[in-house]
Simulated scan of single mutants.
Amino acid sequence: MMLATALVFIMHLGFASVEAGFTQSKNTVNILFKNTLTPVLGIVTYALLGFSLMYPGEFNGILGFGMDTWDTIWFNSGSADVSEGYADGGYTFWTDFLYQAMFAATAATIVSGAVAERIKLGAYLTFTLFYVGIVYPIIGSWKWGGGFLDELGFVDFAGSTIVHSVGGWGALVGIWLLGPRIGKYNNGSTSEISGSSVPLATIGVFLLWLGWFGFNGGSVLSADPGLTSLVLVTTTLGACGGAIGGHFTSMIVMKRIDFGMVLNGILAGLVGVTAGADIITPFEALFIGAVAGVLVVFSVLLLDKLKLDDCVGAVSVHLTCGIWGTLATGIFGEGASFMSQLYGVLACGAAAIVGSFIIFYILKVTMGLRVSEEAEKHGLDSEEHGIRGYTILIED
């Protein structure tokens, strides 16, 4: 469990690398700053509010807030009374908290890439505090905290919906309220805004793939060799299927060999198998991943038609393929019900949309969401941080 926690933690470096690689060099420091502060704020906020809302324990306080859980986090030194008998002795309270805190911060990071290059730093960080502290854990409690979705038989093994779709809905609401980057959509056409570093984005994707072994493998919540190894196999084949689906679909539809779609296809496949990685066969994992790779291409093209500017394809990867993976679990997963899966997708989606809209809209009418046109053109590194991520050499 602790090894899995470390693997999920390193996913934040993967997200930072993907986002910095797929966005413009003039915003690199801003991207890295957000991705550094996201786990910092996410973990602290989850300790203050999130974990006690998501896993309230035996005592449910105000709005289901677990006062006993909160008290243990902040005022217990880690003595045996919170370790013995916890989770039937499989792991400790502290292990559980830290592992779940990494998941919580991941949901906010999904939003970061979509709204990059034009959102105010303060607005994004404030959104992160409320989304990780309140919205995500309340939704998560409906399944992982033993709530009504769990009672209905909703299956979401490691979070295709609870983590990825919840983050994806927040990202979609954010880019809708923000509007597109300057110059992205002109005269009915879509302009290609080149990223700063394809090699960095590639490194980020492989770091995320590595981290997914902890994301899904750790969700077994034990060292059971049979089930854990199966989950790692289905996870890997899902990624492979996503790369294949993304590659061939982009060749057919976009008439070019698009490496970006291969990279996002890998992530799409990983998101797709996350809901049912423990109850699907390796062949089904490959198929689910391949379909996710196809869907991510069409989703990216659809968002551009709708003039919804997602800098890194986060909505397409995490929301579109999170929904597909959750529903696919109801089709292929042993013991899962399609109607329960559909109900879970709709319930979590509605809550995430309402929650993220309220937070973003309040921020929009108070502190404002978007940087000035001048700041966006010059780059957020110079305007907000006074330092650039890359040294630019100008030759005569």
Rank of each mutant, 00 (worst) to 15 (best):
S250M: 10
T366E: 00
G245L: 04
S160Q: 04
N187V: 05
F259V: 15
F287T: 13
C311N: 14
I394R: 15
L380V: 04
W70E: 03
A87C: 10
L63V: 13
L267H: 11
A4G: 10
L232W: 15
K26F: 10
E192M: 13
A314I: 03
L41I: 14
T69L: 01
F154V: 01
P225S: 02
V8F: 08
T36C: 13
I134W: 09
I119G: 09
A6W: 03
L49V: 06
I62A: 11
T23M: 04
N30A: 02
Y86I: 10
H12M: 10
I362P: 00
T329G: 04
V163W: 01
A171C: 02
F332H: 04
K120R: 14
L237I: 08
R256L: 05
V294G: 02
I280W: 04
L369E: 01
G159V: 06
Y55W: 12
A268Y: 07
M261Y: 12
K26L: 06
S83V: 13
T126W: 13
V253D: 10
V294E: 01
S299P: 00
S197Q: 10
V317G: 06
C311Q: 14
W169S: 00
V262N: 07
S191W: 00
Y361T: 00
N27V: 13
R181L: 11
Y86L: 06
W144L: 05
S299T: 11
V111E: 09
I162Q: 07
L308H: 03
L149T: 09
C321N: 15
W70N: 05
A201R: 06
I31K: 04
L152V: 14
C348Y: 00
Y185F: 14
G78I: 08
Y86H: 11
G218F: 07
L32S: 00
F15H: 06
